[in-house]
Design a protein around this nucleic acid. Structure first.
Length: 736
DNA sequence: TTCAGTTTAGTTTTT
DNA sequence: CTAAACTGAA
């Protein structure tokens, strides 16, 4: 055992949180107050005190990355036995549990985990079978309702009439029932099931519950403010009666309400767990005084909060730089210029991050980073949602779980193998009447000779291939097997034949997937990993600027933080305010609070007068949140000088007034001429950069330096020094 | 059954 | 603006 004086490194409150072992404990831990340190020290202290064994402790984190980090930090104090502590996200722990007890809810242990897109596909089919018009009843809406019910722990039987008040909900309950049986027959579970099924199993099987209770003696929960009802019920169930449960969280950082998170879980902790002890951590070790008092003053505008005030021994530091720009591309350029300046001052790029409200904001910023030759990384880029990646994973899913109808449907004719809509419909119809999977149905169709000769031949070949690959699951390495599948199925060739830039990228992505798989021992482990991987699990902190959404930034910290797009409508998002009124606005404000408190040293907030939304240029006014920041902590960047001063009376009059949402589209001042000018400059800019000549030296963000060897309009063929020959669009390379 | 060309619908955040 | 859905011809 490695003995370290971990207790002495803690402040008074932290130490109390670490040493309070028995009974329910809530640690209200503000941003940057050392909550991870408390959690790790607590685990170490529990083990060090000899009270319990590692496998009797369960620590639930919000991301797998957080779990990994925690494990590392605990093992630094206590040694390798830290590995035996049960750590993971609710979803990964739930999935594990469900694999052990799957038969209790009618699943097999090799069930597939499906994502939102698969849900929508399944619901589409159900609507079709139920003769409900997709146009009238959008599948996405049903998916949302069903997920919402699952978050609340509602199985179909428990849906009461009061839940049906919305007109769709009457159908929704029916769709929900059919959806669940569809999933069951596909041997699949969605994200909600990973939490809901374990709860049901524990409730209905007293022996399983007792076994769990005798195993788990101490529970630690991170990010408690973002737990939903199911997670809450689950914690209540397994922690009773000793209630040795320690929840750490910050009500001001609750930003997942739209996903079913209930702030009331943390607000009502003392009521839910009688005799609970509450400890507040308010000393911040992360940010400067200016950053901290801005955050405090902003969040003070929220009504629904427990209330706390962060303080720091640190000095005031630099003021927050507030910048108004003309349009979003100016904003992107500004961020890149500032990053360049910081880099010039010797600051590491890995200490810089840009946090946006919506992921689409990253595109323009990326463009400028490429032009400015600054390495960057988009964290949580939707790699696993790309078509080619989903297709590849669907092949693996079908091989591991033949009953996975959603995977079957996705790839049965991808690449085209002569099995058209008619044949597929026959397969589906038969599976419905025979109550078997699509895959089994296909086998029957071949036997029964119901399809056209060519279809039959093609289907036979497909079945043969799936079976053949299935025999290799345990023999081949996952990466080798996928490579084999993509080659033999003709999937890679399908993209190769296209010879477009996009198809090249897709093949690159597939190769990236294959190489990423090499760290996994078996396919099942890999599939588990990809489906419940969290956003920032893939983060790497090399010499790159990080670009991500505010949501993805939870739990992270950076020296220099850019917060672009502080405009009313974008941030706070008009949708959340429209849909949920003040509740929605408060959540947006908490999101702003999370953003501000990520910064350790310097914070740059910016807003733009014009932004292109869904292809149309819109003008906008600065975010109301800007006025909630104390003037003494802020300095306005007058260099840019492209926007009206924030003291503008029209803007102030409209604050906190819903009508100003309506005036959102109103031009603040006429930019028409300027607009045209910039447009001209931009096109000229683009055209100039597009005249590439053979032999020219160029730079590409991903592939580095290279020489142009072929020019075909916008499409360039480049021989890169380190990455070989690639086809690239001219927008993505820079002249040297 | 396939493929190319055209129209339309949907765009906040994510396990 | 983009991806999915649709349409019609080969």
């Amino acid at each position: 055992m490695i003995i370290r004086n971990y207790l002495e490194e803690l402040n008074l409150e932290q130490r109390e949180a670490v040493q309070t072992f028995d009974g329910p404990l809530l640690v209200l831990s503000g941003a940057g107050t050392g909550k991870t340190r408390v959690l790790t020290s607590r685990i170490a202290h529990l083990l060090y005190s000899g009270l319990t064994k590692p496998w009797n402790i369960m620590a639930v984190t919000f991301t797998n990355k957080a779990a990994r980090e925690m494990k590392e930090r605990v093992s630094k104090i206590i040694g390798p036995s830290a590995d035996q502590v049960i750590m993971g996200t609710f979803h990964s722990i739930g999935a594990n549990f469900l694999r052990q007890h799957s038969e209790l809810v009618g699943l097999k242990s090799n069930f597939s985990i499906i994502d939102v897109d698969d849900q929508v596909t399944a619901i589409k089919q159900i609507l079709k079978d139920s003769n409900l018009d997709e146009k009238l009843y959008p599948p996405r809406l049903f998916a949302k309702i069903i997920n919402h019910w699952k978050d609340k722990g509602l199985v179909p039987e428990k849906i009461t009439d009061s839940e049906k008040d919305r007109f769709e909900n009457e159908f929704a309950k029916d769709v929900y029932i059919k959806y669940q049986s569809k999933l069951k027959s596909s041997n699949s579970a969605d994200f909600g099931d990973l939490l809901l099924y374990p709860l049901i199993i524990l409730k209905d099987n007293i022996d399983v519950l007792e076994k769990w209770k005798s195993k788990i003696k101490y529970i630690l929960v991170d990010e408690y403010q973002d737990t939903n009802t199911v997670q809450y019920l689950w914690l209540r169930l397994v922690s009773q009666p000793e209630n040795n449960i320690c929840c750490v969280g910050d009500d001001d950082q609750s930003i997942y309400g739209w996903r079913g998170a209930e702030v009331k879980n943390i607000l009502g902790f003392e009521k839910d767990f009688p005799k609970a002890k509450v400890i507040r951590l308010e000393q911040n070790y992360r940010s400067t005084g200016n950053i901290l008092s801005s955050a405090n003053s902003l969040i003070d505008n929220n009504n629904f909060r427990l209330g706390k005030n962060l303080w720091t021994k640190d000095n005031k530091g630099k003021k927050i730089l507030l910048t108004g720009v003309y349009d979003s591309s100016e904003e992107a350029k500004y961020i890149v210029n500032m990053s360049q300046t910081l880099r010039g001052e010797g600051k590491l790029l890995s200490n810089i991050c840009v946090l946006v409200r919506t992921i689409s904001q990253t595109r323009e910023i990326e463009e400028q980073f490429i032009k400015g030759c600054i390495p960057y990384k988009v964290v949580g880029a939707k790699f696993f949602e790309r078509q080619e990646i989903r297709d590849a994973i669907a092949y693996l899913r079908l091989i591991v779980n033949n009953a996975d109808d959603l995977a079957f449907q996705r790839i049965i004719n991808t690449p085209r193998r002569g099995i058209g809509a008619n044949s597929i419909q026959k397969i589906i119809d038969f599976s419905l009447s025979a109550k078997c999977s699509y895959f089994l149905s296909s086998i029957e169709q071949v036997k029964l000779n119901t399809l056209s000769l060519s279809s039959k031949k093609n289907l036979e070949r497909f079945i043969f291939q799936i079976n053949k690959w299935g025999t290799l699951i345990y023999d081949e390495r996952p990466s080798d097997l996928l490579q084999l599948i993509l080659k033999d199925s003709g999937y890679i060739d399908m993209w190769k034949k296209m010879e477009t830039i996009e198809s090249e990228t897709r093949i690159d992505n597939l190769n990236e997937l294959i190489s990423g798989m090499s760290e996994f021992e078996n396919i099942k482990e890999f599939l588990e990993h990809v489906s419940i991987m969290t956003n920032n699990d893939r983060i790497n902190i090399d010499g790159e600027v990080s670009l991500m959404t505010l949501h993805a930034s939870k739990g992270l910290e950076f020296d220099y933080v850019f917060l672009p797009g502080w405009e009313d409508g974008l941030f706070p998002s008009i949708r959340s305010v429209d849909e949920k009124g003040n509740i929605g606005l408060e959540e947006e404000r908490r999101l702003a609070y999370v953003g501000i408190t990520r910064a350790k040293k310097e914070l740059y907030i910016s807003y733009s007068a014009n932004r292109r939304i869904h292809g149309l240029w819109m003008s906008s006014i600065p975010s109301r949140f800007i006025n909630e920041l104390p003037k003494e902590n802020i300095i306005e960047n007058l260099d840019q000088g492209l926007y009206l001063p924030t003291g503008d009376s029209e803007f102030n009059d409209n604050l906190n007034n819903k009508s100003h949402f309506l005036s959102r589209h109103k031009k603040i001042y006429n930019h028409a001429n300027y607009n045209q000018e910039t447009f001209k400059i931009k096109t000229r800019d683009k055209q100039m950069s597009r005249n590439f000549i053979i032999g020219e030296r160029v730079f590409h963000q991903k592939f580095g330096m290279g020489n142009v060897i072929n020019v075909n309009g916008e499409n360039l063929e480049i021989s890169f020094d380190n990455a070989g020959i690639k086809k690239v669009r001219s927008d993505f390379v820079l002249k040297k």
